[in-house]
């Protein structure tokens, strides 16, 4: 009886804690509104995605992310540099990188401006 109860309690706690505790910051990479990657911002990685114009290169390093290379003409997305929060959007190549799940005050539903 006790064993079963403990097993049940531990299973429930596992799911409950996963929901209740904040998760680490993640980087989501979307192309044309479709999520392609979701990876922890703490990893060091370079990811490539194909948009309508070609290949966009995204670099994740030391808790930051940036669009490293882009086939778009003006490369405004690349000039935006590194982000730790918020998003960078490449409109011509329909690529968005966005930091989500940052615990604490800076977690916003949207940013105006």
């Amino acid at each position: 009886m006790l064993l079963l109860f403990l097993l049940f309690l531990s299973l429930y706690s596992f799911f409950f804690i996963r929901q209740a505790l904040p998760q680490g910051a993640e980087l989501e990479i979307e192309v044309s509104g479709e999520l392609r990657y979701a990876l922890p911002l703490s990893t060091n990685k370079t990811v490539e995605v194909e948009g309508p114009l070609g290949r966009t290169v995204i670099e994740v390093k030391e808790g930051r992310a940036r669009i490293k290379d882009s086939p778009c003409r003006n490369r405004i997305c690349m000039h935006q540099g590194w982000i730790r929060s918020g998003a960078v959007v490449c409109l011509p190549n329909r690529v968005m990188i966005r930091v989500t799940g940052t615990a604490g005050r800076r977690e916003m539903d949207a940013i105006s401006g």
């Binding site: 982000i83 916003m108 539903d109």
Partner: peptide
């Protein structure tokens, strides 16, 4: 909750 962008932000966009 909505953040208002800092008009004189540093390297960290948004």
């Amino acid at each position: 909750r909505i953040g208002i962008r800092d008009p004189r932000q540093g390297n960290d966009t948004k």
